[in-house]
């Protein structure tokens, strides 16, 4: 599995000064990591974006993530976060689908 971090360009639909964007580190686990082929990436989003917005941006760019988005633990800085949580620069958002093997 690729551990490289990849930069995702800003969502072009939002007309914002790039300097005002905030950087979020997204961590992928289990099936999400398999789909993405990487363990984490940096995502640039508009200030005041929520965890849900961030997920939507990801889904638009990587539609294959659709399959895990209804069944996962979403953690913001290692704490449970509802999708309405507001993100700030440097936040770490973890996408953790359940695994069932044993």
């Amino acid at each position: 599995m690729d551990n490289n971090t990849c930069e995702v360009p800003v969502d072009a639909t939002r007309e914002l000064n790039p300097e005002s964007l905030i950087k979020i580190k997204v961590l992928f686990f289990a099936r999400a990591r398999e789909i993405m082929g990487l363990a984490d990436m940096t995502l640039e989003v508009a200030p005041q974006s929520t965890a849900g917005d961030c997920l939507m941006t990801l889904l638009t760019k990587f539609p294959k993530l659709e399959e895990i988005c209804n069944s996962m633990v979403l953690a913001l800085n290692e704490e449970y976060a509802p999708k309405s949580s507001t993100l700030k620069n440097g936040d770490e958002l973890a996408i953790i689908p359940p695994i069932s093997g044993g």
Binding site: E67, S71, S100, G101, G102
Partner: peptide, 25 residues
């Protein structure tokens, strides 16, 4: 409470398909 809806591709996520490093379990 955590996973009210089961993920759709569960059938494929097994050690017999995906493999597992012995010491992990």
């Amino acid at each position: 409470c955590l996973f009210p809806t089961p993920p759709p591709t569960a059938a494929c996520q097994r050690c017999s398909d995906s493999g597992v490093l012995g010491v992990v379990p």
